[in-house]
Simulated assay, not measured.
Amino acid sequence: MTAREDASALIQRMHECFNTRQFDQAADLHTPGFFSHPLDTTGFQAGKDAWRTLTARFPGIRVVAQDILVDGDKAAVRSTVEGITTLDGDAQPMLIEIFRIEDGRFAEMWGVSTGFPPSASPEPPRRAGMHILRGDPPGSSTRWPADRPRCGTGTAR
């Protein structure tokens, strides 16, 4: 297999572990020092806990990769999420994640979600008035005030 095929297979395996609720096997796909930027944690235990919470709340939840792009040691995946009821006309929930892969395992992850009902969002709540700049190193205190314009928008988000 090429590095591209290996990365794609690793992502597919992670989705398979989630969809079949084999959370302990998913832990083996991550390095011991794996860092989740959205959860701001080291190790995969917080990821397993988040997965357990989501599957308890939504027993039919499934993640389906739509696009996997690989560049060097990074892989990006756009996934749809099935099994969560949304309001009529709302978009189907979606995840966009970027992984850094080290020695055939996930070493680091950045991610955003859209279309999730507030009670189902996999992202932790944001602090009032502040947006965490995802991808900051562990322990970093870099923050962006919510009332300041973001890149190219000219308006606050």
Results as ranks from 00 to 15, higher is better:
Ala3Arg: 08
Arg78Ile: 15
Thr53Gln: 14
Val63Leu: 14
Phe99Leu: 08
Cys17Asn: 12
Leu54Trp: 03
Arg127Ser: 12
Lys48Tyr: 00
Leu54Pro: 03
His15Cys: 12
Val77Leu: 00
His15Lys: 00
Leu69Gln: 09
Gly135Trp: 01
Thr153Lys: 09
Thr155Gly: 02
Asp73Trp: 02
Ser36Val: 06
Gly111Ala: 14
Thr53Ile: 11
Leu69Met: 11
Thr142Val: 14
Cys151Thr: 09
Pro137Asn: 03
Thr31Glu: 06
Phe106Tyr: 12
Ala128Cys: 01
Ala91Asn: 10
Lys74Trp: 03
Ala27Trp: 02
Glu16Met: 02
Met14Trp: 15
Gln45Leu: 11
Arg52Lys: 15
Arg21Phe: 08
Asp40Arg: 13
Asp24His: 09
Pro138Phe: 04
Phe99Gln: 02
Met14Ser: 12
Pro118Thr: 08
Ser121Trp: 01
Ala65Ile: 03
Arg52His: 06
Glu16Ser: 13
Ile96Leu: 15
Thr80Leu: 14
Phe23Met: 08
Ala146Thr: 10
Cys17Ile: 08
Ala76Cys: 07
Asp90Leu: 02
Ser119Phe: 01
Asp88His: 11
Asp6Pro: 00
Trp110Ile: 05
Ala56Tyr: 04
Gln25Glu: 15
Phe106Lys: 07
Arg143Ser: 07
Gly89Asp: 04
Ser8Asp: 07
Cys17Thr: 11
Phe99Ile: 02
His15Thr: 08
Asp73Tyr: 02
Leu87Gly: 12
Gln25Val: 05
Ser140Trp: 01
Thr114Leu: 12
Phe58Glu: 13
Ile98Tyr: 00
Thr20Gly: 02
Ile11Tyr: 04
Met14Val: 13
Gln25Ile: 00
Glu82Thr: 12
Ser113Gln: 15
Ala46Cys: 07
Asn19Glu: 05
Gln25Phe: 01
Pro38Met: 02
Met94Val: 14
Asp90Cys: 08
Ile101Met: 06
Gln45Met: 05
Ser119Gly: 03
Ala156Cys: 06
Gly33Val: 01
Gly43Phe: 03
Arg134Tyr: 02
Pro32Ala: 03
Met94Phe: 00
Val77Thr: 12
Phe116Leu: 04
Ser8Trp: 00
His131Trp: 10
Ile132Asp: 05
Glu108Gln: 14
Asp103His: 13
Gly115Leu: 10
Phe58Pro: 00
Val81Cys: 10
Ile98Val: 15
Ile101Lys: 07
Pro32Gln: 02
Glu108Lys: 10
Ile84Asp: 09
Lys48His: 00
Val70His: 06
Asp88Thr: 13
Arg52Trp: 00
Gln12His: 14
Met14Lys: 04
Pro145Gly: 10
Asp136Trp: 00
Arg134Val: 10
Gln45Asn: 08
Gln66Asp: 15
Ala156Trp: 07
Thr55Asn: 01
Asp24Asn: 13
Arg143Phe: 04
Leu87Phe: 03
Arg126Leu: 08
Asp71Lys: 03
Pro145Asp: 10
Asp136Thr: 09
Phe34Lys: 06
Val63Cys: 04
Arg13Gln: 14
Pro32Met: 02
Arg62Thr: 13
Ala120Phe: 03
Pro145Trp: 08
Pro59His: 07
Val63Ala: 11
Pro38Cys: 02
Thr42Lys: 10
Ala75Lys: 06
